[in-house]
Simulated scan of single mutants.
Amino acid sequence: MTPPLLAALLFAAAPVRAEPPNVLADTAPVQSLVAMVMGDLGTPGLIVAPGTSPHDASLTPSEAQALTEADVIVWTGDALLPWLGESIASLAPQAEVHSLLSTDGWEPLPADGDDGIDPHAWLDPEVAAAWLGHIASALSQADPEDAETYRRNAAGAAERLATLGADLRQRPAPLGETGYAVGHDAYRYFGRAVGLAPAGAIAPSDGSEPAPSDIAALRDLVASGQVRCLLLDAETDPSWADTLAEGAPLSTATVDPEGLTLDPGPDLYPTLIANLTAALESCLGA
């Protein structure tokens, strides 16, 4: 038997390594968490296009096609993206679907005005760390061969988020005597993580029109000096700052809780939280 023939026979007998699963995530923060867990094994796709708010999104033909090809879909859940669930069910019946809001190991907060769950849970690094473990389990079910890598990556990422959470609790805390308001009611988890809950919100978390009573209450808080900072995001008209202040001191800071302005990838989530913390710290200290 000649050496080339032997080599060919050995190659043919060797087991073929399966490719990692084709993974999709719904939003940029979730995609970042999934990317941390996947590491060098692959890059998860993103359903909601970069720079697009999940509240305003709709599926493009290419995004719909991506759903039909997915092996695993990790998404926040119906409470954040009610328009996506039906598309997943119809276009991706073959995929393993994992809703992070339906997992355990973290403490949900109630949504404003109803009995549901506030869906903005990624804004608490402790919640995100718990989600890393669930993501690793989901990927391990689809790809048992790489299960140890997923678990190891998730553990390393969780340590990084623990450090991030500790920093989050320490930095703005000395400024806690000054209250802050937010553009829409999406920062309860962040307020819990930082130890400084927002004093109020201009609009509900679903982006509906502000209630006159809520605006009047915020005006009173600003006029009395109890609120000196307003966090503005892409869904908030900046002219609300003038409406609320009416001559009273009110600092503003622009924040990006959904990572709309950040490059997708494993560093997006830590950068998002660090930027949000720095913005609050600057606004409260102004």
Score class of each variant (00 low, 15 high):
1 M>G: 15
3 P>L: 12
10 L>N: 14
12 A>T: 15
17 R>G: 14
17 R>A: 14
18 A>N: 13
20 P>Y: 03
25 A>V: 00
31 Q>R: 02
35 A>E: 13
35 A>C: 06
39 G>I: 02
43 T>W: 12
44 P>Y: 03
47 I>F: 12
48 V>W: 03
51 G>A: 03
52 T>D: 04
53 S>H: 12
54 P>K: 02
55 H>A: 11
55 H>L: 06
56 D>E: 10
58 S>A: 14
58 S>P: 10
59 L>S: 01
59 L>T: 00
61 P>L: 14
62 S>H: 09
62 S>C: 13
63 E>W: 07
65 Q>E: 14
65 Q>H: 11
66 A>R: 05
69 E>R: 11
70 A>F: 09
72 V>R: 04
74 V>G: 06
75 W>K: 09
76 T>W: 02
76 T>L: 09
79 A>I: 01
80 L>N: 00
80 L>I: 03
81 L>A: 02
82 P>V: 02
82 P>K: 00
87 S>A: 15
94 Q>D: 06
97 V>E: 06
99 S>R: 08
99 S>I: 00
99 S>F: 11
100 L>D: 00
106 W>S: 01
107 E>K: 07
108 P>M: 09
114 D>V: 01
114 D>P: 09
116 G>D: 04
117 I>F: 02
118 D>F: 02
120 H>D: 15
122 W>P: 01
122 W>Q: 06
125 P>S: 07
130 A>T: 09
130 A>M: 04
135 I>M: 10
135 I>S: 03
140 S>M: 11
140 S>P: 02
140 S>R: 04
143 D>E: 13
147 A>E: 15
148 E>F: 14
149 T>P: 09
151 R>C: 08
156 G>S: 10
157 A>T: 09
159 E>N: 08
163 T>Y: 11
164 L>Y: 00
168 L>Y: 00
170 Q>G: 06
170 Q>P: 00
170 Q>R: 10
171 R>T: 07
174 P>G: 04
175 L>C: 01
176 G>Q: 11
178 T>H: 13
180 Y>F: 15
182 V>D: 14
185 D>Q: 14
187 Y>W: 14
188 R>I: 05
189 Y>V: 05
199 A>T: 11
200 G>Q: 05
202 I>G: 06
204 P>L: 12
208 S>M: 07
210 P>F: 13
212 P>Y: 10
212 P>Q: 12
213 S>P: 00
219 R>N: 10
219 R>S: 04
220 D>P: 01
220 D>H: 05
221 L>K: 06
222 V>M: 01
223 A>T: 03
226 Q>E: 03
232 L>A: 07
236 T>E: 06
244 L>E: 01
246 E>A: 11
249 P>G: 08
249 P>L: 09
249 P>H: 06
254 T>K: 01
256 D>F: 07
256 D>P: 07
258 E>C: 13
258 E>L: 11
259 G>V: 10
261 T>L: 08
262 L>C: 12
267 D>F: 09
270 P>H: 12
273 I>R: 03
279 A>F: 10
281 E>Q: 08
283 C>H: 08
283 C>R: 10
